[in-house]
Amino acid sequence: MRIKQGFKLRTVGKEYIVAGEGLAQIDFNKLISLNRSAAYLWQEVEGKDFDEQTLADLLVSKYDIPAGQALADAADIATNWIEAGIAER
């Protein structure tokens, strides 16, 4: 999967948001809020192809959590991104 074109990660105070700023997302009128670990994943996979395993590996290397839990969290995040319309398979 990939992050769709035209989305930009920004910080507002200490919080992270994704906004549709590119021409491809000119009609996207929502702001998606990300927590710190989702923002970390976003920065790592932006512009690249990735899957749940990629995200899980990133979580393991950064937060030192068990692989099984990381994969479950990664699957949740991937589903959230797709449902929010900011990533696609």
Partner: peptide, 22 residues
């Protein structure tokens, strides 16, 4: 803060696809 951002940003003149302006 995020709710405030969500109401104020759309009220500002911008070309949000132009990186520098946005």
């Amino acid at each position: 803060l995020l709710q405030a951002y969500a109401i104020v940003l759309p009220a500002c003149s911008s070309m949000r696809w132009e990186e520098e302006i946005a």
